[in-house]
């Protein structure tokens, strides 16, 4: 965002308003991920990484406001208030960083809505894509693709391979993916039209859902045995 804001007019919309929205998400997600570890990951990574890729826990809203980026809050991104707001703001591009499906009404507010998928497209669509990619394949990609109505099924514009090292766990891989996603977005916005013309089809593949903890453990073993 910081980089993009230097050359573009940028704004952010947050899909949670009150303490209850955050509590609801926290309670649901603690069954699925190690919430605490995700938010305190930075000190666990090598110092070389810390400096640029993993700045540690920050309050995103405060951070963006400090940069002078306008921020809006709606109670739900799929709600009518969100659609009204987006229609009013008329963005040229959108970047979605959400953990749920967006309704067509929201998607239609953007001429191009982008998402960085932390898994191997077109084969692995949906939730826990990093874990599924590791379990099913021997490599991991971050894919920049367009959001369409069907889950993770829009055109793929850019891809980057992630180095999976012995000793990595899924939170570390996720942090690596975040780092790669940032560079993909910057690359895309350097030459958006060119990237859009050179797209890769995203037709095949299957939808995957939340991975069971026993399969996750097997996928983790697979990383350890590399």
């Amino acid at each position: 965002m910081q980089e993009l804001a230097k050359h573009h007019e940028v704004f952010a919309v947050f899909g949670k308003k009150g303490i209850w929205d955050h509590l609801d998400t926290y309670l649901r997600r603690r069954n699925e991920i190690d919430v605490h570890r995700r938010h305190t990951l930075a000190p666990l990574l090598p110092a070389s990484h810390n400096a640029h890729a993993f700045p540690g826990p920050v309050n995103t809203l405060r951070f963006l406001r400090r940069l002078g980026i306008p921020c809006y809050k709606v109670s739900h991104l799929n709600g009518a208030a969100s659609v009204d707001l987006l229609k009013r703001l008329k963005p040229d591009y959108g970047i979605a960083a959400v953990d749920h499906m967006l309704l067509p009404a929201v998607i239609d507010c953007f001429p191009t809505l982008l998402n960085a998928h932390y898994g191997n497209l077109p084969q692995v669509k949906g939730r826990d894509a990093t874990e599924w990619s590791i379990l099913l394949h021997d490599h991991l990609n971050v894919c920049l693709h367009e959001i369409v109505e069907r889950m993770d099924a829009g055109r793929i514009y850019l891809k980057e391979n992630i180095a999976v090292d012995k000793g990595d766990d899924f939170e570390i891989l996720r942090a690596k993916c975040q780092d790669a996603a940032k560079s993909l977005y910057l690359r895309f916005f350097e030459r958006p039209e060119e990237c859009k013309n050179l797209y890769e089809s995203n037709e095949d593949g299957k939808n995957y859902y939340l991975m069971n903890w026993e399969l996750k453990a097997l996928a983790q073993k697979k990383v350890e045995r590399r």
Partner: peptide, 13 residues
């Protein structure tokens, strides 16, 4: 097909 295995494991849990 691992998706079947995954759902089965969730259901058993």
């Amino acid at each position: 097909e691992e998706r079947y295995l995954n759902t089965a494991l969730h259901l058993i849990d």
